[in-house]
Write a protein that binds this DNA or RNA. Structure first.
Length: 553
DNA sequence: GTAGGGTTAG
């Protein structure tokens, strides 16, 4: 009876049954009833009541332990699930079986705790519990989530029995870890083996298309999804919207969005984000209003995205309006939103308000610190950015990450703090052992290039482990123009033409270098080449609101 | 007759 209630989430009725059982004194003697009651309360999100039933048993069996652990795990309380598991193992009265481990491994996956997962893996092998499909799938998912691509693919190869869940986990693993091609290969291998794709495998394959801007393949998968009726699935549609938006087909994304019968906050967020991505940020406020009037309560992610859209547009009034809404919805302490608010105010030319938001946040995570440092940098206040960075490093336990260094290095570069920039770059590599990416190198080249240290800038490019991207060569080209070094400018330009042959700005920069060096022949040749390619110099657009004296208190 | 696996987002 309780089981039936759990299935139906019929709490009131279940409680009545619980009362009846208690009155008849059956609960102590009947473990079946106990686990059914725990399941009922857990599924109704009443973990306290579930735990109370569990504690009534002085000698719970393995099923009872497992039900309680699973209850925590499925309610998203993985920490409690693992601590209960530890308690069970310490007591040593019952031995975990494969079913217990499924929930324990899932909890490790939720916490991205690979170390704990691996020790459970060892335990499972030792106990000979390792062959079950569900448990293998749970491990597969753990490796997928923690980015252990090799461990996941090795396990998959070894599995004798596989189902659509196994395939789905492997596809997601590849898709989320920069191996889109492998993800699509696995998807097609799966269909060749006549395993019917479900919504999860379709989502993984779509994400792989999205990551590589593979519109052609994305459309094929859309067809499969439509044939199987997955256009009714909001998660599949969200993945489709993301894919179309990222592949530069916003019209198809919008059309699909309008066809959707059920919409949640996540798919609205995908639409919003996609519009900004495709240069239609101006529509974002309208979309946000439509979402509100259709009765969807915005969640933290939607709020963060609409704020990002607003910072792209630079409309301060809109930032104030949204900030008020954030407060009204009770999101003031949300770290994502705090970071977006700081970014919005900084980009909307209101550093004072960004600082007020920063100071109003008690629990500052690394995103908050990095956003504020970036804010100072954007406004040319490099010294203050450095002070804030120092304060973070010295007074908190928060470790700067790649993004933090991007912000602080760019702050130094904006105001020409060369010595400090070099020190920070060395700190990043040696003290924090972070691997600089193309953007970091780009800033360093910019920093050195601006002050005329072109040879040092070139030296940095030559010592990079990866080939220089557009940030790097673009920064060097810009520096060569300022300091009139035609020879090095040509090297930089040649690399840029290869990286992005259609980018008009690079040709124009080089032709300006030729012009100031008096190389009129070279300049004319280049201009003709540009004309032949029918490139037009794109006029940069920026928008700044004129009246912006409002402040928040 | 009681317990088990995968997916959205800054």
């Amino acid at each position: 009876m309780s089981l039936a209630c759990a299935g139906l989430r019929a709490l009131d009725f279940g409680k009545m049954v619980h009362g009846f059982i208690k009155k008849n004194d059956e609960i102590d003697s009947n473990l079946f009833v106990g686990s059914a009651m725990i399941e009922l309360y857990s599924k109704c999100r009443m973990l306290d009541d579930a735990l109370r039933v569990f504690e009534e048993y002085t000698q719970p069996d393995i099923v009872l332990w497992t039900t309680m652990i699973t209850g925590f795990e499925q309610s998203g309380d993985a920490v409690e699930a693992l601590s209960l598991f530890t308690r069970m193992v310490m007591l040593g009265r019952v031995c975990p079986d494969a079913i217990t481990l499924v929930s324990v491994v899932s909890a490790c996956g939720q916490l991205l705790n690979l170390k704990a997962g691996i020790s459970v893996h060892g335990f499972a092998v030792k106990m000979g519990l390792y062959s079950g499909l569900s448990l293998s799938n749970a491990f597969l998912n753990l490796y997928a989530k923690t980015g252990c691509v090799n461990a996941a693919s090795n396990l998959f190869k070894k599995m004798q029995e596989k189902d659509v869940i196994s395939w789905g986990s492997l596809i997601a693993c590849y898709a989320h870890n920069g191996a889109a091609k492998e993800a699509l290969d696995v998807f097609s291998e799966m269909t060749h083996k006549r395993v019917e794709p479900n919504s999860v495998t379709v989502i993984g394959a779509l994400q792989a298309c999205e990551a590589t801007c593979n519109l052609e393949e994305g459309k094929k998968i859309h067809e499969i999804a439509a044939r199987k009726g997955f256009e009714l699935d909001v998660l599949v549609c969200t993945a489709l919207i993301d894919m179309y938006m990222n592949c530069g087909s916003p019209d198809e994304a919008v059309e699909l969005f309008h066809r959707m019968t059920k919409k949640d906050a996540v798919c609205w967020a995908a639409l919003l984000c996609g519009c900004v991505q495709n240069g239609m940020g101006g529509k974002s406020m309208g979309i946000f209003c439509n979402m509100l009037s259709s009765g969807i309560q915005p969640d933290a992610v939607v709020m963060a995205k609409i704020l990002t859209a607003c910072s792209e547009l630079g409309i301060l009034q809109q930032a104030f309006c949204l900030h008020g809404f954030v407060i009204k919805c009770g999101f003031s302490n949300n770290a994502f939103i705090g970071g977006s608010l700081i970014e919005s105010y900084s980009k909307c030319c209101s550093l004072d308000n960004a600082i007020k938001v920063f100071e109003g946040i008690n629990d500052r995570d690394i995103v908050i610190w990095s956003s504020m440092i970036a804010g100072y940098g954007m406004h040319g206040r490099g010294r203050e950015a450095l002070e804030l960075f120092d304060q973070m490093v010295k007074n908190t336990t928060i470790r700067p990450n790649n993004v933090t260094f991007l912000s602080i290095l760019s702050a130094c570069s904006h105001v020409g703090l060369v010595k400090e920039g070099i020190e920070l770059f060395n700190m990043m590599v040696h003290e924090y052992q972070l691997m600089p990416n193309s953007k970091h190198y780009g800033i360093m080249v910019d920093l050195l290039g601006r002050t005329g240290e072109l040879d040092k800038a070139m030296g940095i490019i030559n010592q990079m482990a990866v080939p220089g991207g557009p940030h790097v060569w673009g920064a060097l080209l810009g520096a060569c123009r300022i300091h009139q070094n035609t020879e090095m400018g040509e090297v930089a330009a040649r690399n840029l033409f290869q990286l992005d042959p259609d980018h008009a700005g690079y040709y124009i920069l080089l032709s300006n270098i030729y012009a100031s060096d008096g190389k009129w022949d070279d300049m004319t040749k280049l201009r003709t080449l540009v004309k032949d390619k029918m490139l037009k110099k794109l006029s940069g657009q920026s928008r700044v609101e004129v009246r912006s004296e409002v402040t928040i208190s």
